[in-house]
Design a protein around this nucleic acid. Sequence first.
DNA 1: CCATTAATAGGCG
DNA 2: CGCCTATTAATGG
Length: 217
Amino acid sequence: MDKKHTPIACISKAALFADLSKAMKEKIVPITTHQQYFPKGSLIRQPLDGKDGMLVIDRGSAKVYNLNEDGKETILGILNQGDIEGQQNLFKQESNENFIQALQDTWICSMNRRDFQNLLKATPELAVTMLNDFGKKLVTIERDMAIRKSLDAKGRLMARLHDLAKDQGTNYVTLLLKKKDLASYLGITPETLSRQFKILEKEKKIEVHGKRVKILE
DNA sequence: CCATTAATAGGCG
DNA sequence: CGCCTATTAATGG
């Protein structure tokens, strides 16, 4: 299935590293572990697993979630190819407190905290790039929170669909998540999500075909 | 096939 | 809207 994988190519896929010079990337290579394979549904990270590094999705996708008091999942975010997760772990002692589960067969590359800290000290450009990335993530999170608080279920769903359309570059969007996961991500129940889909269809705003949704407005 | 999980439907607070 | 239950669809072995 997989052809060739070079550490440099892998690093370049990660938004965080994409803009670095080749020399910079070569500095990163030695501290990375490449192409660990996780079958669909397996846990890539979980609390107390002792993994302290950050990871990059080389291929595949994964969901980040934790469990609330009632033992139910709350989806914190979705990782797609090239996304970074666990940057926090590079700066603090504790290991992960969230679960990360592969949504498809997924390959990740990773590095541990200590090696990366040393590299950061030696490579200011990397530190700056990373800080900017943090900023972007912060903006996204704040925006998501604002949406969750201000919009009702229908509005949240529509907003999410438009985001997906933007990400995927088409109005015929493919839902990567199971609907119950999408519901969790939106902070609503699966039942409510199902109802909102029906309502939006009736209003001629979307067309649902299994896991694909056409956005009509 | 059967068993489990996901999605939907309907009732109710 | 969330929670609950029942039914059906989809999935995986």
